[in-house]
Simulated scan of single mutants.
Amino acid sequence: MSTFIAAFVVLLLFFVLMSIGYFIKHKAVEGSCGGLGALGIEKACDCDDPCDKRKRRMAAEEERREKLAKDRII
């Protein structure tokens, strides 16, 4: 039981330290490998012919961008 408590305390300490770092720097935690961009993949779904769900999502995003551009004051 003491091992579990010690592991929990150490994990909690790391979370507290990461939170303090976030509040001080105002920068989110991010990976160092570059993610999918490092592999030359522009998006998570890099298919030539996306599925229907993806097509609907892309159409909704485009519609939202057009609406924002139309309603933009500046």
Score class of each variant (00 low, 15 high):
15 F>I: 06
23 F>Q: 08
14 F>K: 01
26 H>T: 10
21 G>M: 13
37 G>D: 02
14 F>V: 10
27 K>Q: 13
39 L>I: 04
34 G>F: 05
17 L>D: 01
21 G>W: 11
26 H>V: 06
22 Y>N: 02
45 C>T: 00
44 A>D: 02
39 L>K: 15
39 L>M: 09
42 E>F: 12
31 G>K: 03
36 L>C: 10
38 A>V: 03
45 C>Y: 04
22 Y>E: 04
27 K>I: 14
19 S>Y: 13
30 E>F: 07
14 F>I: 03
26 H>P: 02
39 L>E: 04
38 A>L: 09
13 L>N: 00
27 K>N: 06
31 G>W: 06
47 C>G: 00
35 G>P: 09
22 Y>G: 02
43 K>M: 01
29 V>D: 04
28 A>D: 08
20 I>C: 13
16 V>M: 15
43 K>H: 12
22 Y>F: 15
20 I>T: 10
46 D>I: 00
26 H>N: 14
40 G>R: 08
36 L>F: 02
30 E>T: 10
44 A>M: 05
21 G>Q: 04
38 A>R: 10
37 G>M: 05
20 I>M: 12
34 G>H: 08
42 E>S: 13
35 G>F: 05
33 C>T: 11
17 L>G: 13
16 V>W: 07
19 S>V: 01
27 K>T: 11
46 D>C: 09
32 S>E: 09
41 I>E: 01
46 D>R: 00
46 D>S: 11
38 A>T: 06
46 D>G: 00
45 C>K: 04
17 L>K: 06
34 G>D: 07
24 I>N: 07
28 A>L: 14
40 G>F: 03
20 I>V: 15
35 G>Q: 05
45 C>W: 00
23 F>W: 14
47 C>T: 08
43 K>F: 09
46 D>P: 15
32 S>C: 13
36 L>M: 14
23 F>R: 12
15 F>V: 10
28 A>H: 12
23 F>A: 14
42 E>L: 09
28 A>S: 15
13 L>E: 02
25 K>V: 02
26 H>F: 13
42 E>A: 15
21 G>Y: 09
41 I>L: 14
22 Y>Q: 07
24 I>Y: 14
14 F>Y: 11
13 L>M: 13
20 I>N: 03
34 G>E: 08
13 L>D: 00
24 I>R: 14
17 L>F: 14
30 E>S: 11
33 C>D: 14
26 H>L: 12
22 Y>H: 11
32 S>M: 13
21 G>C: 12
